[in-house]
């Protein structure tokens, strides 16, 4: 039997346990609410700053800016269905209308954001290239005319603040490892890629660029295994896009986004050409606007395009681009309003 004193003592401890539990639950709920609030605030400010950076880079043509990054760094990824995201910690934001090519993870305190316009021949969109300055980037050129031509074009187009090392195959064979977390190597030409002994077992990404095919390589021990190929038009814009992409998927998604954007821009230019044709006709001017050629820039069902279809679409667009340049020059010669 428990006497009154014993009962009071047990009640006392029970009371302390319940009251303590309630106080703990209360503080946990306060802390949880505070965390939710600060998370919302953080994601709001992150989204705001990321949007501003990429949208302004997208709006400015050919600009290259150094941007400070949040402590967590930034992650870039695209799913198989081309839902592309930029991520910092738990905060995630879709690329939206921006077309971004980047490494999958950038951890440096600052990053270089470079925008390059894609023109057909009028500007369609500014492609955004994100470069981690702490990643070592090496071009390895062979002696082919393609490699020589690309070397000159790259030197002309890549901004000074994105550092690339350039070397021959022989020089690359004896190159030393500098301790970089990641080394990206771009083999340009028809020669077979390889890994020098200094880089074996290190984190290295390889892309082989020849006149017809881009090949993404996986490094397994000391051997190279090509895991993805894509035929591409030997166009400097898309070579750069592949070089800055984390993988083939990001490259293909960017290419498809650019084609979707082109569909809209081409529709506007085509309608504008029709309006101009009507107006100039009313004024008695003989101006022939290439409405059909502008319509040829439009690609149906971009989302479902296979790799080969993508290649043929870009090739078709490139040939229309060349013809539009000629047609625009003819319009200028006849004192007609320009197409672009």
């Amino acid at each position: 039997m428990i006497d009154n004193k014993g009962f009071a003592l047990q009640f006392h401890w029970l009371f302390i346990l319940i009251a303590g539990g309630i106080i703990l639950v209360f503080f946990f709920s306060v802390a949880g609410k505070q965390k939710a609030l600060s998370d919302e605030k953080l994601s709001l400010s992150l989204v705001q700053s990321m949007d501003a950076i990429f949208e302004m880079a997208g709006a400015g043509e050919g600009t290259s800016q150094v941007i400070p990054l949040p402590k967590n760094g930034l992650g870039f990824s695209c799913t198989g269905t081309c839902d592309c995201f930029v991520q910092s910690g738990s905060a995630r934001k879709s690329f939206g209308n921006n077309i971004i090519f980047s490494e999958d993870e950038v951890k440096a305190p600052e990053v270089i954001v470079w925008s390059l316009p894609w023109k057909v021949p009028f500007r369609v969109v500014n492609l955004i290239f994100v470069s981690d300055p702490e990643t070592r980037k090496i071009f390895v050129f062979d002696d082919s005319p393609f490699a020589k031509d690309l070397k000159d074009k790259l030197a002309e187009i890549i901004p000074d603040n994105i550092i690339f090392e350039q070397m021959s195959f022989a020089e690359f064979n004896s190159v030393s490892f500098d301790g970089s977390d990641l080394t990206k190597v771009f083999f340009v030409g028809n020669s077979r890629p390889f890994i020098p002994s200094a880089f074996q077992g290190k984190n290295i990404e390889l892309l082989s660029i020849n006149p017809q095919v881009l090949a993404f390589y996986d490094v397994q021990g000391s051997s190279l295994v090509p895991y993805d190929f894509i035929k591409y038009p030997a166009d400097i814009t898309w070579i750069l896009a592949a070089m800055f992409s984390a993988d083939k998927n990001m490259f293909v998604c960017g290419l498809k986004s650019a084609l979707q954007r082109l569909n809209l821009v081409a529709k506007v230019f085509s309608d504008r050409a029709m309006f101009l044709a009507e107006k100039t006709d009313e004024m008695g001017l003989e101006c022939a606007y290439p409405v059909d050629e502008l319509d040829d820039l439009i690609t149906e069902n971009v989302v479902g395009l296979s790799d080969d279809d993508l290649f043929s679409s870009i090739s078709r667009i490139n040939s229309v681009r060349d013809s539009l340049v000629v047609r625009n020059d003819q319009l200028i010669e006849r004192s007609c309003p320009e197409l672009f």
């Binding site: 809209l264 529709k267 506007v268 230019f269 085509s270 309608d271 504008r272 309006f275 101009l276």
Partner: peptide, 12 residues
């Protein structure tokens, strides 16, 4: 803004 692009874009 280009006048004819405005017209085309508002249709689009």
């Amino acid at each position: 803004f280009d006048l004819f692009k405005l017209q085309a874009f508002s249709n689009l």
